[in-house]
């Protein structure tokens, strides 16, 4: 057993321990905190497997953004501090069944599994992206990514639908009271420019190196949220036409390129001659839409009258 094997076994044990802690935690807040730890450990696991793209997505979205969403939800649900959520045998059975089924599916895979790696390698020259992960996400399996973008948008529509009549169309979240020259105010002006550059860079390198619309978009969403929390900018009103155009631009451009694919023979088929600029355009616009959607999902429903 090499040192690397020992590290991997230790990492797996830590992941399992964190997962058990999430389920058996004493209270909601503790469970959510452990869920974030679990996500970060999973990120290391993806790095160990050489899947840096997935690691970035897991760290930014799985641990970071989902963690923030769950923290917000737990704060709203926690009526008696430290109260343990009630035990539901049906949910336990369902989760155990799904986990067991997934485990069985993985174990029963043919060994050695060839997978789709040779097929992806073979078609990479005409995919318009040097990074095989981006080639799969934006070209070979563009369908899935389009659906993901649509699901995010629908989730935000669902959150907005919860707003009461008098605040519909108004700004999301509450007014932030922050001293301009205070610690948070200064941080909120210092970090966003750097974070914005990092986010755009992650999208830009996505075609040839680990990165992409979801990872870069999450970074941009995070610094936008910070600027909002620090009182530097206000979230736009939900009724704003410009905001709605920004939110739907990504899925719309993606869908349009998909329809244009009919010219190359089928829905979502990219002509190899245009594949690279098309993928880059879709990624950039999609990243901005994803950033806006994720940030507004975290801020929540409109709370202030228009």
């Amino acid at each position: 057993m090499t040192l690397g094997d020992a590290f991997d076994i230790l990492l797996c044990l830590l992941i399992l321990t964190a997962a058990a802690g999430v389920i058996g935690g004493r209270d909601l807040f503790g469970s959510v905190a452990l869920f974030i730890v679990y996500g970060l450990l999973l990120t290391i696991a993806w790095v160990r497997l050489g899947a840096v793209d997935v690691a970035l997505a897991e760290g930014a979205i799985g641990a970071g953004l989902t963690g923030v969403l769950l923290l917000g939800a737990a704060a709203k649900m926690d009526d008696g501090a430290g109260q343990r959520p009630s035990f539901r045998p049906g949910a336990l059975l369902l989760c155990a069944g799904v986990a067991g089924g997934l485990g069985w599916a993985v174990v029963s895979l043919a060994q050695p599994a060839a997978g789709l790696i040779p097929l992806v390698r073979e078609n990479l020259p005409v995919a318009g992206a040097d990074n095989p992960v981006t080639a799969v996400l934006l070209n070979f399996r563009g369908w899935d990514t389009l659906m993901e973008a649509a699901v995010l948008l629908i989730a935000l529509v669902g959150v907005w639908a919860l707003s009461p009549e008098d605040s519909w169309g108004g700004r999301s979240g509450l007014t932030q009271r922050v001293r301009v020259d205070g610690v948070l105010g200064t941080f909120g002006r210092f970090l966003p420019p750097i974070g914005f550059v990092v986010g755009v860079y992650l999208v830009w390198v996505g075609t040839s190196a680990p990165g992409g619309a979801f990872q870069g978009g999450t970074v941009v969403a995070a610094v936008w949220l910070l600027a909002i929390m620090a009182g530097v900018v206000e979230p736009p009103p939900v009724a704003s036409i410009r905001l709605r155009l920004l939110l739907m631009a990504g899925p719309a451009v993606f869908l349009a390129t998909g329809i244009w694919g009919f010219a190359a023979g089928a829905f979502m088929a990219f002509d190899p001659a245009y594949a690279k600029p098309l993928i880059l355009a879709v990624e950039l616009v999609l990243a901005l839409s994803i950033a806006a959607t994720l940030a507004l999902l975290v801020i929540g429903r409109p709370r202030r009258p228009q």
Binding site: V183, L184, F187, F190, L191, I194
Partner: peptide, 16 residues
């Protein structure tokens, strides 16, 4: 540098 700034800022906020 970024970790330093983030740690210093959050520490201040939590401390307050």
């Amino acid at each position: 540098l970024l970790a330093l700034t983030a740690a210093a800022t959050t520490a201040q906020l939590i401390a307050r």
